[in-house]
Design a binder for these strands. Structure first.
Lengths: 234, 234
DNA sequence: GAGTGGTCTAGACCACGCG
DNA sequence: GCGTGGTCTAGACCACTCT
């Protein structure tokens, strides 16, 4: 772990645990240099990370100030798996694997995952049950040339944990797209949609470190339970 | 304009105009140092900006590579005003100002905008007409202590342009929240909702450079016309 | 004027990818 | 082994805020 990430993590901990309070002024960069016995550049890298992620605001001539994270719920933006999310929340969450298969890619998926004719794809369909209701339908399509083996057990737990932990692949960036659509018959069959006839669809294209696209996901949510929070800098 | 931002902008131009193509390798950092006659740190700042905004991917030991922006539509995330957006798109867009007033803040808004009893707020309600249909209802609430004067003409054009340009205020960051709700009677009255009975609601809290909250916006969209695209790094 | 963050420089060592 | 990007250092000057 690099120094500046360690210092960043320390600040994140202090802010999330309320040791550093909203609006509080951080020590100046030169003070922090002495305190951590590092160069100014290292301190600045840490503070820049904090600013990017909405923990602090830096003001020229004045100092760095802690922002109010409570107002921000939890920005679930970025690339976060359902498993990581559910660990953060206090809800009772269950995952039901509806389908788990390896097949030749059909035309639609060949385009989406940029595959050639011989490639195979994993298809994983999972229903997420929150507090006793089937709320989210996750349909994952994984490039079989990159993910060689996959087990039902992994699907029940966490794909990302397996991919990053076991396989050692590095997930780097993703494009996400949020739209609202009419519920399909599959949505109606697998989810507890009540009277709702629409679903929020989050499509994600996820890329590895080396810019290979390895996953396409369609996450279909019951509209009343959907919430997306984002923190953006201009 | 700082050097590293200039270099960043030059790269952005080259990538958006196709002078630098998808997957193409950039010159190495040391080459770029010589080419621009700057230090390595300056080049690295430019490249980091490019990476953050999804223009390139850097690979240790290999180099920096241009990412395919076409696949990313236009990430409209970040803080972008409707006016800035409509300039980018080729659609015929009209804005109808439905309401424009300055009043004492009611309880709900006092909480949302963190106001005291004496404060006033501007309320601006606008209907966005795209290709002949009323698609978006924008309800803006602005802190009257910060925005002293406002005119109908500004509302017809662009609030942000006025705030940043005329008033010289610096918009710094925002929290956004996307949910889906039942359409209100106001939605139904002002928008061409067809048979849809739900709207996508984007709530934004926008902050200035000095961490003052100055604007709360509720943007209500017809569901079939709503699309949110995001580029995220892990 | 003193203190703060923003930019820029020059140099060093490391970890990684590839031939 | 060489070239690449990643981290870290030490020092400089600037622009801004506050008193």
């Amino acid at each position: 772990m690099s120094k500046y990430v360690s210092i960043y993590n320390e600040f994140v901990g202090d802010i999330e645990n309320g040791i550093l309070k909203n609006g509080e002024k951080l020590k100046s960069e030169s003070d922090l240099m002495k305190q951590y016995d590092v160069s100014r550049d290292t301190i600045r890298k840490s503070l820049n990370l904090l600013e990017q992620n909405g923990y602090i605001q830096k003001l020229k001539g004045k100092g760095s100030f802690v922002l109010d994270r409570n107002k921000f719920d939890f920005p679930v933006s970025g690339i976060t798996s359902f498993y990581e999310l559910s660990k953060k929340m206090g809800k009772e969450i269950k995952t039901q694997v509806e389908e788990f298969s390896l097949k030749a890619a059909d035309e639609k998926m060949k385009v989406k995952l940029e595959l050639s004719d011989e490639d195979h794809i994993w298809k994983v369909v999972r229903v997420r049950n929150i507090d006793g209701e089937n709320i989210i339908l996750d349909k994952d399509y994984l490039n079989g040339s990159i993910i060689q083996t996959l087990t039902l057990d992994v699907c029940k737990r966490s794909l990302y944990e397996y991919i990053e932990g076991e396989l050692g692949l590095k997930i780097s960036y993703a494009k996400k797209e949020i739209t609202v659509q009419k519920a399909s018959t599959e949505d109606k069959r697998l989810l507890d949609l009540e009277h709702y006839d629409m679903v929020v669809v989050v499509k994600s294209y996820t890329y590895l470190n080396d810019t290979t696209l390895f996953q396409y996901t369609e996450s279909r949510h019951r509209p009343d339970k959907f919430k997306f929070v984002d923190f953006a800098r201009r």
